[in-house]
């Protein structure tokens, strides 16, 4: 059962990443990221079984990534009245193509990594890499600050999968710290978003490039 879930989970996670890359509608994007967060929160349990640390990690992630942060983002969306991402410089289809190439590359590349023997053909590492790639792409190609926050979340999801793999050797405090960081980051971004909106009356990050000097 665990084996089969470990086979299926990565694909659900990666497909959700692709969906976020291809979708224009912000609400659907936020929901997809929330679902992705909820799905990856299963990883510690699947990898290490039902035990204290894993339960804590899972529960924390589920709460934060699956519920709290998405709700905050949805609230921000409502308050700022944004619904759609605008066409980025390279468009949605090319972004998706690059995303699939990155994901495929992650799967090909993961085989060459010097991993512990038991992780050699597992799907965990390539999934983490592919998810991080999707997050990066989102941050790079999107123009709205909100989608960039989403990209940051997806990137963090990827890191979390990695973390879950090595949580045996990683003190729980570090994990908790990461999660807390994330929460604070989203908080700050929420405030910044609000400020941007008030200053420029748009959430497009393009005007911010004026601040380069």
């Amino acid at each position: 059962m665990t084996e089969q879930l470990l086979q299926l989970l990565p694909f659900a996670v990666i497909l959700l990443g692709f969906y976020v890359l291809a979708s224009q509608r912000l609400r659907a994007c936020v929901e997809a990221v929330a679902l992705q967060g909820a799905l990856i929160s299963c990883y510690p349990l699947l990898l290490h079984g039902f035990e204290g640390q894993a339960l804590m990690l899972s529960g924390g992630a589920l709460l934060l990534k699956g519920i709290v942060i998405p709700l905050m983002l949805l609230r921000a969306m409502r308050k700022l009245q944004i619904e759609r991402e605008i066409e980025s410089l390279i468009g949605f289809i090319p972004t998706l193509v690059v995303g699939v190439v990155v994901a495929a590359g992650a799967f090909l590349f993961a085989d060459t990594l010097p991993l512990a023997l038991e992780h050699h053909h597992s799907l965990v590492v390539p999934t983490a890499l592919a998810t991080m790639g999707c997050g990066f792409l989102l941050i790079i190609t999107r123009r709205k600050a909100l989608t960039q926050v989403l990209g940051y979340l997806v990137l963090e999801n990827g890191i979390y999968i990695f973390g879950a793999l090595i949580s045996k050797v990683l003190p729980a405090m570090v994990e908790a710290g990461v999660l807390l960081d994330l929460l604070v980051a989203v908080f700050i971004m929420g405030i910044v978003l609000h400020q941007i909106k008030r200053e420029f009356s748009t959430l497009d990050t393009q005007p911010l490039t004026e601040l380069k000097e």
């Binding site: 497909l15 692709f18 291809a22 949605f92 289809i93 998706l96 193509v97 699939v100 495929a104």
Partner: peptide
């Protein structure tokens, strides 16, 4: 086009997975 290209990409991804 996005839908059709996207679905093609899924198959491409699947193909890469069994090729590796």
């Amino acid at each position: 086009p996005a839908l059709l290209i996207g679905s093609g990409l899924l198959a491409a991804f699947g193909l890469i997975l069994i090729l590796r």
